[in-house]
Design a protein around this nucleic acid. Structure first.
Length: 623
RNA sequence: GGACCCGUGGUGUAGCGGCCCAACAUGCCAGCCUGUCACGCUGGAGAUCGCCGGUUCGAAUCCGGUCGGGUCCGCCA
């Protein structure tokens, strides 16, 4: 591009550009002083910018003035150095630097800006720094190579996403951030309107309705890198504002969306992190029911085996003799097991830890059977099952000598969730998952609804506009025959949605669905969820009205960019791939947000706090 | 809303009732040093142990509260 000049009055090259082939030429570099090594008559400066590090050497006998300036320079000063690119003396090359064969012999050093001593080390890649400190001085944190590399990776990710979508006929459309509150489950952030006092905008939890309106508008294929806002409690993988790859396609069925997304995801991963192998293509697909049955979760990490084994067949003829098992089966629950390879030598303390973990996941207890190297079974329940019973159980579970079998007996859902949680825990603890591999899978055919015990009604498990499997359409009804009288055993509870989630290494990466575009089905689905006609119009008026003007069949997906980037960067925390994330209490430690409002702003909006006033603004950030 | 963990010179840690007006490493400052690249050597400065209160003859250390950070549960179509 003609206007893109790297060479400016400040530099002829970046700090990562010079090589031995440049030896003999002159160059001007600008950057931060990464490190200074003062040898008296001779001073070395490692000059750093985001492209790399180049060693500058300033020799007093070459230029006393330059040497005097170099003596004054400190870490993180910004300097410009003019000099001659010289091949380093034989034996003093630095193989760890791409620029390590040369150095810049400094003839003129100018200080562009000085720096206080930074609050933590910029130049130590292994430094363990308190995260609160990193967040308060994020601009320094991002100077660190590990952090900036993650941001560059994220930039490449987003660039690859855009490239693939544009190549496949998608139109990138921006949707507004000041919209109407749309009840999608999470709490809204609201923004008071000055022009219409007493009214508020809501920040979008996702562009869901807007992208469906774009389908009605005939855009056909839409995508957006969209900022989304949800006012819920934070987690390592959840921030109040986050970024989604949001896309929607017209005239598609489930397979068409999944096929495109899968191809797109593979291409984007290969281009962003070419060295990371993708486990299995096409991505394995599981129905929700199968995933819960085999892995105890709807986001299984498939980088390792360990599946849930149903133990019920062992006792089809006669009861097990252990009350906990027999009662669970008698009450319609399940008794299932997982095998932890090589954990047969587990200690009492570790068993207690696992039991504690199981209880936190909802189990009443945890049964364990350790298989000794000799094949003998050591267990807490041998006395109930008998030696023979215990050995049959262990054999049925597929355990080998040296393994540990963990058994949970409870209601179906609890059994799955507990063993699913333990499976994930063991995978991490035993290091079963290859950290390099990217292992995707699809989960689809989720239940349309889950029973809302509190409100005695059916609740959409995902998007309220998600479609239903054609063969399950007739299930969208109640036993009473009246949609206004839902009950927990209604046929609707068995209806499966045209809903699909994509999972990467045990994280839910994204989810989407084929939408309901038929008014009659939509009305039935909403009625089951306890929505009146008037209520529907209040909440979804624009979309419902649009659906009266020829909506095309359509569907799409939303994929979490923060999570995707975190997984590609091998991070367990999305804050590590966000430039300026918030703390668990929703604060920005650098900007000191949120903060007390300006009274004048409040007056203009006709607002005042009626609860306890916020404390005075916190102590100012950096001195 | 709940459970748990953490808070000690700039940074990371040690100390966990008196031996501590607090130790170590690194950083910082000064001096010396012409081939280093985590340069080296010598010397120096730097902390009322997050904050408030209590127990005790005595608290960095024990207790309560509070603030800040984190992990998890609830919550998050």
């Amino acid at each position: 591009m003609p206007g893109d000049r790297l060479a400016t009055p400040y530099r002829t090259h970046t700090c990562g550009a010079l090589r031995s082939s440049d030896a003999g030429s002159t160059a001007r570099l600008s950057g931060w002083v990464h490190r200074r090594r003062d040898h008296g008559q001779l001073i070395f400066l490692d000059l750093r910018d985001r492209h790399g590090i180049t060693q500058v050497v300033v020799d007093k006998s070459d230029d006393p003035d330059a040497h005097a300036v170099a003596s004054r320079v400190r870490s993180e000063f910004v300097v410009t150095v003019d000099g001659e690119v010289a091949r380093r003396l034989t034996g003093t090359e630095n193989r760890r630097l791409p620029t390590g064969e040369i150095e810049l012999r400094g003839r003129a050093v100018r200080i562009l800006s000085e720096s206080k001593t930074p609050p933590f080390y910029i130049n130590d890649p292994d430094a363990q720094i308190d995260e609160a400190l990193r967040l308060r001085y994020r601009y320094l944190d991002i100077r660190r190579e590990a952090m900036s590399e993650r941001l560059f990776l994220r930039s490449r990710l987003v660039q690859a996403i855009r490239k693939v979508h544009h190549a496949h006929g998608f139109v990138e459309v921006e949707t507004p951030n000041l919209i109407k509150s749309t009840p999608e489950g999470a709490r809204d952030f609201i923004v008071p309107s000055r022009l219409q006092p007493g009214s508020v905008y809501a920040l979008p939890q996702s562009p869901q309705q807007l992208k469906q309106l774009l389908m009605v508008a005939g855009v056909d294929r839409y995508f957006q890198i969209a900022r989304c806002f949800r006012d819920e409690d934070l987690r390592g993988d959840r921030q109040p504002e986050f970024t989604q790859l949001d896309l929607e396609m017209s005239f598609v069925d489930e397979d068409a969306v999944m096929a495109f997304v899968e191809a797109m995801v593979i291409e984007v991963c290969r281009s962003t992190t070419p060295d990371r192998p993708i486990a299995e293509t096409p991505f394995p697909r599981f129905t929700y029911a199968e995933a819960m049955e085999r892995f105890g979760t709807d986001k299984p990490d498939l980088r390792f085996g360990i599946e849930l084994v149903d133990l019920a067949p062992l006792w089809s003829e006669a009861p097990s003799g252990f009350r906990v098992f027999d009662d669970a089966l008698h009450d319609g629950g399940r008794v299932k097991a997982i095998v932890a390879p090589g954990m047969g030598g587990i200690s009492r303390r570790e068993i207690d830890e696992l039991t504690e973990r199981a209880k936190r996941l909802g189990a009443k207890g945890l049964v364990w059977l350790a298989v000794e190297e000799t094949g003998a079974v050591r267990s807490s329940v041998s006395k109930f099952l008998g030696e023979d019973g215990a050995e049959r159980l262990v054999a049925h579970a597929g355990a080998n000598p040296g393994d540990l079998v963990l058994v949970v007996a409870d209601e179906t859902a609890v059994t799955s969730e507990v063993l699913g949680g333990l499976r994930a825990e063991l995978g991490g603890r035993l290091g079963l998952a290859d950290p390099e591999v990217l292992s995707f899978c699809w989960i689809h055919r989720f239940p349309m609804y889950k029973w809302d015990v509190e409100n005695e009604r059916w609740d959409a498990t995902h998007n309220p506009f998600s479609g239903v499997l054609p063969e399950d359409e007739e299930l969208l009804t109640t036993t009473a025959g009246d949609l206004a009288k839902p009950a927990p055993d209604d046929p609707a509870g068995r209806a499966r949605a045209l809903q699909y989630d994509i999972t990467l290494n045990g994280w839910e990466l994204g989810g989407g669905s084929i939408r309901i575009h038929r008014r009659d089905l939509l009305a039935r689905s909403f009625a089951l969820q306890g929505q009146t006609e008037a209520g529907m119009n209040e909440k979804f008026g624009a979309l419902l009205e649009a659906f009266e003007y020829g909506p095309p069949p359509h569907g799409g997906i939303a994929i979490g960019i923060d999570r995707w980037a975190a997984l590609l960067a091998d991070q367990r925390n999305i804050r590590e791939v966000m430039a300026f994330p918030k703390t668990q209490s929703g604060g920005d430690l650098m900007l000191d947000a949120p903060s007390a409002p300006d009274p004048a702003q409040f007056a203009e909006l006709g607002l005042r706090f009626v609860g306890a006033p916020r404390r005075d603004p916190a102590t100012p950030p950096a001195e």
